[in-house]
Write a protein that binds this DNA or RNA. Structure first.
Lengths: 246, 246
DNA sequence: GGCAAAATGTGTTAAAAAACATAATTTATT
DNA sequence: AATAAATTATGTTTTTTAACACATTTTGCC
């Protein structure tokens, strides 16, 4: 699958949009609360809202890291291309998560790609501005480091999950991850995240066929109910057991 | 394989040892150069040298993080236990690498285990002291964060390597990693790192049998020469190709 | 609404890798 | 040096998963 930029004539993402308003950074993610009044003004002045359509590419693995991003509305997948078109989804983002900050700090190219799962709004801040704040404010630096420490722990756990668990364990793990990250719809059972089977496969290190097949099996076993991309979790305990035992 | 503590009556590691002397922290890893004179004194006062024997466990996944460590002499493996005794080696350390710092900063338990590949000497610094320095000195915090950014990028690359490459690709990758990390002996061909096949397997996400078999294949193909644990790399280019193509 | 394209579902076959078995060799210990 | 234990080596079988094929359903678009 290709995630093409909607319109190659303009910079990625669009700045013109309806009159949707967003609160300033520090009201959305506690990360920014460590900034002083002055720094907040600086941050607000250098953050702009950009919009992406469903499946539009936000940045690509290997691109020069020009911006640090914070998701405002929608969902974003962070992924890496592996051997022969296969993608590995590294993590999925929800509003107010930041991304692209690692590359900005390390002064390296992005080491993964980001694309919109659904129509999105994001704040973007030029690398230099973000870097400046991190270098200037020790508390802010510490908060960013805490975030990175979480990402690192998660990545190392995922390595073991994805390499050592069997297909059923990996898929169960992914479903529970979606649950943890996005929760349920109002009905208290349906995952509040609609993913194509291909993405589910790319999260779980398996082929799309196997994601479809295994999901059907889970449904037959009464662990889930499937209605297209709407997935109801009926037996969380059993899913956890399948995930734990590999 | 079990890595048992040599003597359960004493705290892990031994402080009594021969009169080996080590330079202060800041002469060994540039990380510490960002500390002021005063902070250096503080760091030196709170870092003590500890010794570990071959295969001795330094810390265990899930242990409360009491220390941040810096390797002085020897080699250390960082690993996670997966499903059914299988270990995944997360990374291998060489002198002056630091480890256990992520858990100290996140104020979490260690999320992986560390054991000595060969007889080792390490500096250890209580979590509170390390944490204090990170919080007090913004430049130091930034340096530590840079290190974490490298570890995070590496971890994400490894996830894709280990999940998507085939056995030959994964083993070739591991061998090149050993080469990059430890280099050659004086002969310019023999890897300066002697690992049992089991560790090679645990690095490469495969069974020990398959590590042995694939290594033999590489030798038959003239890519390597094997003499017990001594591995001569004869055709680096071809190994890189095998690694790249998966 | 109708069409094409994409996504989902399911069965079959082939490839990859683990599991198992057993022998030979090396290493450690007494 | 002798012995036991661990590691290395190699062949065989079984399990797991990818690859392939094709039908069906859903979705997007004019």
């Amino acid at each position: 699958m290709l995630y093409l930029c909607r319109d190659f004539r303009m910079d990625r993402g669009s700045m013109k949009h309806n009159d949707e308003q967003f609160a300033p950074l520090w009201e959305l993610n506690e990360l920014w609360e460590t900034l002083t009044e002055e720094e907040r003004t600086y941050a607000a002045e250098h953050a702009e809202v950009v919009y992406y359509e469903k499946n539009e590419l936000i940045h690509s693995d290997g691109d020069e890291s020009l911006y640090m991003w914070m998701l405002l509305r929608g969902k974003v997948r962070i992924f890496k291309e592996g051997i022969g078109q296969r993608q590995q989804i590294i993590r999925l983002l929800k509003p107010y998560d930041i991304f692209g900050y690692r590359a900005c700090i390390a002064e390296e190219a992005y080491n993964s790609s980001a694309s919109a799962v659904e129509s999105c709004a994001v704040y973007r801040m030029p690398k230099e501005c973000f870097s400046h704040l991190v270098r200037q404010n020790g508390s802010f630096c510490y908060q960013v480091m805490l975030m990175m420490a979480k990402d690192l722990a998660f990545s190392e756990i995922q390595t073991v999950n994805l390499t050592q668990k069997h297909i059923r364990g990996r898929l169960a793990e992914s479903l529970l991850l979606l649950l943890k990250n996005y929760g349920y719809e109002e009905d208290g059972h349906t995952l509040a995240m609609l993913l194509p089977r291909e993405d589910l496969a790319n999260m779980s290190n398996m082929t799309t066929s196997n994601a479809i097949r295994t999901l059907s099996q889970f449904a037959q076993e009464g662990l889930l109910a499937i209605d297209g991309r709407h997935i109801q979790i009926l037996d969380e305990k059993s899913l956890e057991k399948i995930s734990r035992l590999g």
